[in-house]
Amino acid sequence: MMLKMLKRILFAALFSVSMLSVDGRAAEDLISRRVSGKVVATDTEATPNTIVVKAKTAKNKDLIVGADVTDKTVIMKRGGAASLKDIRPGESVELAYTRDGKVVATSIAAK
């Protein structure tokens, strides 16, 4: 009798956990990525500012990354601090970004 009760409780608990995990999957995980490529464009007039970089995937396909540039984005050029206005189209950069519903640049390093 006791064992039967425990089985039922365990079943109910597992069912609930599985339902909650379905819900949990709906929330997108924060993805952090880093790409190297050439700057296609920057927009310092837009709010938020943006940068677009053309990189290559592992399969050598073109990958366009467009990211918001915020106050927290660390921008470096030739080893020194810089601003987005210092980054020009055609320059090679390494862009680190996060993706969580929107793409936000965490760092931009121009060579």
Binding site: I9, A12, F15, S16, M19, L20, V22
Partner: peptide, 21 residues
């Protein structure tokens, strides 16, 4: 008591499930 707690837990699960649909 077992049945009540099981129904409660199922209810919790279903509630959580609907949020992200």
């Amino acid at each position: 008591l077992v049945l009540t707690s099981a129904l409660f837990l199922i209810g919790l699960g279903l509630n959580g499930c609907t949020k992200g649909v």
